[in-house]
Nucleic acid binder design. Structure first.
Length: 504
DNA sequence: GTATGCGGGTGTC
DNA sequence: GACACCCGCATAC
């Protein structure tokens, strides 16, 4: 097994997971001997124990857009995931990536955000709600107890990652610094198009009709977007690029076309669902090449990743590994994959966290049209200030329509000949995987949860079929999706410059 | 202006 | 009662 995959697997076994506790326990583990390193992108039913002096834990930070949720418990802070904001038309950016915005946490700001148009195609923005926890948003719980901060996540994010908070803050910070220096010159250039500059240089607004209202130019320039006179190559330097993005995205709600990942690599267990076809830039049958950062093109940038098109299919599969890979590699978690120790809790998500692609809803969420058992609810951006939940109606062009057209869903093969991984099913409230296993042929339009609530279900994968087990203490041996073939997508940066003509 | 945390309140199961 | 969710308020940046 490659070292990267090994680290990724290790990350799935946090110290917190080795102990038996629940965030609601009256008594938490006292004076833990070890602590987990902070995980910015927790995904799955995971638990961590952080040091009480861990700053990020103190701030209850998360890469996911988590909002506070009142659980009427002053000792336990509960947060629920807001999902991700994308273009309703799923337009492809020139580099093949897709828009993935971080939903504003503040309700007012989020409503304002949703009223904005896609900076690339001017269509509406769509908030993809998180329904990774039995149809409800993934929830995170924080609890300070003694010298430890206990963290527990419930649910597996069923949507792409939004831009992380740190990225947003970084851009905002940079934005302030750069705005003054670039604002005036760019505005002047725009107001003087006769200067002979090719306004198509950006290559990023081919889908955008010329502003009908001259004021739109002011909007563009007011955000400092360097459309004209900014050759694509001007951003080969990451600093310059970031500065430009900062300006373009102003309040930080717009992601660069090639999302900057918090970590410098992406561990992809296996090319899932033909993501290479997800965008115009991924037509190569080679599943990997476009995902590798071309170091020669961007020697200074270590963490800008060209992946958005990929992320729709990959994100949830290995986000946990990604997020913890670097941070936890020094942690020395036990590599054991066997049965849990006596008394240890066994959350279904423990597996999902380690191998989130096992979640039946993840791989093809954006590959399919609404099945008969389509999600009952969908967050709809309305013209009012309300975000309503209505019957799920996929956009005319979903994220992977092209994939669906080109590839049979049977190609969504997530199993492999690779490393068997142990799974710890939970006797009570069997995970979706179990339910799905009852329909190994992939036709399970409606998933019935333990509480009887039907929730959205997408196509399933025969390869994922796992014999339902009732013995909680036993493990499941299933084929992880190629841990042995895990690939770390070292950053690749597109030479294209980004978009953005509006503040989001 | 926005993020964050707190807490009252309501509706559903 | 548990849970999700709405809302307002206060505070910090």
């Amino acid at each position: 097994m490659p070292a990267e995959a090994g680290r990724a697997a290790d990350c799935a076994r946090s110290y917190g997971m080795k102990l038996s506790w629940d965030i609601n326990d009256p008594q938490m583990p006292q004076e833990p001997a070890h602590f987990d390193c902070f995980c910015e992108w927790p995904d799955g039913y995971v638990r961590f124990i952080y040091r009480s002096d861990e700053k990020k834990a103190q701030r209850h930070l998360s890469g996911w857009a988590m909002r506070n949720t009142n659980n009427h418990n002053g000792h336990i802070l509960k947060k629920s995931c807001l999902g991700v904001v994308v273009c309703a038309r799923a337009c492809a950016l020139p580099d093949g990536s897709r828009l993935q915005l971080r939903p504003a946490i503040c309700d007012k700001a989020r409503l304002k955000q949703q009223k904005k148009a896609c900076p690339n195609c001017h269509s509406a923005l769509e908030l993809i709600p998180c329904r990774g926890h039995s149809g409800y948003p993934v929830t995170n719980f924080w609890r300070l107890d003694g010298n430890a901060i206990f963290f527990q996540a419930k649910g597996v994010h069923d949507h792409p990652r939004p831009e992380s908070k740190s990225e947003t803050e970084a851009r905002r910070s940079s934005n302030k610094r750069q705005m003054a220096s670039l604002y005036q010159p760019q505005k002047k250039r725009i107001l003087e198009p006769e200067a002979g500059e090719d306004q198509d240089n950006s290559g990023h607004f081919n889908n955008i009709p010329p502003p009908e209202n001259p004021e739109e130019w002011d909007i563009i320039t007011d955000t400092g977007f360097p459309i004209p006179a900014q050759p694509c190559f001007a951003f080969l330097n990451s600093d310059v690029y970031k500065a430009a993005c900062d300006l373009a995205t102003s309040q930080g709600d717009v992601m660069p076309p090639f999302q900057k990942y918090p970590n410098s690599r992406i561990c992809l267990p296996r090319p899932p669902c033909s993501y290479e076809l997800a965008g115009p830039g991924y037509t190569n049958l080679n599943p990997y090449p476009t995902l590798y950062k071309d170091a020669s093109n961007n020697p200074n940038d270590t963490d800008w990743v060209r992946l958005n098109a990929l992320q729709y299919n990959v994100n949830s599969y290995c986000s946990f590994e990604r997020s913890c890979d670097l941070a936890c590699k020094q942690h020395g978690w036990k590599p054991a994959l066997g049965k849990p120790g006596l008394g240890e809790r066994t959350d279904p998500g423990q597996f999902q966290a380690a191998h989130p692609y096992y979640n039946p809803e993840l791989p093809c969420r954006y590959l399919t049209t609404a099945p008969p058992g389509a999600p009952a609810l969908q967050t709809v951006i309305t013209t009012t200030t309300k975000v309503s939940y209505q019957a799920y109606q996929p956009p005319a062009l979903k994220y992977c329509d092209s994939v669906r057209e080109a590839k049979n869903l049977s190609d969504c093969n997530y199993t492999s000949e690779n490393t068997p991984v142990s799974v710890y099913p939970e006797t009570l409230g069997l995970p979706a995987a179990v339910t799905r296993a009852a329909s190994p042929t992939g036709s399970l339009p409606l998933k019935i949860l333990g509480d009887g609530r039907p929730i959205r279900t997408t196509l399933t994968f025969p390869q994922e079929s796992v014999p339902p087990r009732t013995d909680r203490a036993e493990t499941w041996d299933v084929c992880a999706s190629g841990l042995g073939s895990a690939i770390c997508y070292s950053d690749r940066v597109s030479p294209f410059f980004s978009y953005d003509n509006e503040e989001f």
